[in-house]
Design a protein around this nucleic acid. Structure first.
Lengths: 203, 203
DNA sequence: ACCCTGACTGTACTACGAGTCCAGTTGACT
DNA sequence: AGTCAACTGGACTCGTAGTACAGTCAGGGT
């Protein structure tokens, strides 16, 4: 069998899908091993316990999310050199991407872990923290570049504004999940985009 | 003993504190009964199962949250009749309230349940949905009143703008929880307030 | 050809929490 | 004295996490 190529990744794929659908605690090892077609022993060979699984999932998720942001804003940059317009285009692309996801979206693992954090060890919690701090830094940098060109019409805390990107996405996903609607997150992003247009308006 | 006054409320108090601290699934009935100083049998006398507990908790939480909003914006109204300024004052009060909560804040139960929703039955999920829809209606109404007086400088979807209040609060609480900082939610609200100032600016 | 190792399988076991059942107690009210 | 609500306490089933360990099996190095 050539599907053995990477059992570990297969476990992570299945676990991620299940966790995003119903939460970490509600996902049993039993169903993961059934889905991955391996034995319980096989699972514990790869992951010491459920915490190790959570850590691996988070690492993978954060990495892919960062790669996605890199790609998104790189594409935006190609379309327009101006930092403000680059940001506005990037957010539009992000909103479109969220909308195109038919199943709603892999509701952010970050929020999911944040609200069940007692289940996890310090390593997992710290990963979570570092990811958000990374996004803060990324977006704060972009906003500072914008502010060099366009004077903000109201004073804003740049760290908080950076956090607002993550916050709006997370919040939108919570709404989407709870309401069972499908485009709340993208609508929230577009609203935030309007905010930036007003805040850094040149006139 | 006169503490027997209401065992049911005592259970709810203890459960709510525990659930907000570490999540629903991570809170065992064992620790709830230990905290409330009753027997396991006593717990199941009041609540058919954990789902019934969740529903009761959500009902109580939503009711108190609505009362809080009522009170907050009523006070704001007393200070200023203008719908925009009333909203701005209300948000400031909300931000201050969130900041004053020493333990961080009862991180919104809504998000918590949204991300573990497979643990709950349809009744619980629907309660959650109705609560958010209620807030959407409340804030949309307020924004429509504002728009009657102040023409928005950019076109916005009023439902989405209404949702943004809930979204920004939820998102801020997620950040706060994950980062272990204490004022992200209030900062996010203040940033949203600046948004409204720009959006409905009279000049 | 031989051995070793990594990637498992399979089984058996402990521990714990949810939920069920039920028999019995206790205090208040009638 | 009898009734009822609000419990207590214990015994039981079931599902899941996690441990332990013995055995299988395919490939790669020697």
């Amino acid at each position: 069998m050539e599907q053995k190529v990477d059992t570990r990744s297969r476990i992570l794929d299945i676990a991620e899908a299940a966790v995003l659908e119903k939460g970490f605690e509600a996902t049993s090892i039993e169903e993961i091993v059934a889905g991955a077609d391996i034995s319980r022993g096989g699972f514990f060979y790869h992951f010491k316990d459920k915490n190790a699984l959570a850590r691996a999932m988070l690492e993978r998720y954060i990495e892919s999310e960062n790669a996605l942001y890199d790609d998104l804003f790189a594409r935006a940059r190609e379309l327009n050199d101006d930092p403000l317009h680059c940001m506005l285009i990037g957010l539009k692309l992000l909103a479109e991407m969220l909308e195109e996801m038919p199943t709603g979206h892999p509701g952010c693992v970050i929020a999911s872990t944040a609200y069940q954090d007692r289940l996890f060890d310090e390593g997992v919690r710290d990963l979570n923290r570092q990811a958000i701090l990374g996004w803060r830094k990324r977006f704060r940098g972009m906003f500072e570049d914008i502010a060099k060109v366009y004077e903000p019409r109201e004073p804003v805390n740049m760290d908080a504004l950076g956090d607002m990107v993550s916050g709006v996405v997370e919040g939108g996903l919570v709404l989407q999940r709870a309401l069972r609607e499908h485009n709340n997150a993208s609508e929230q992003i577009m609203l935030f985009r309007t905010y930036l247009k007003l805040l850094f308006a040149s006139t």
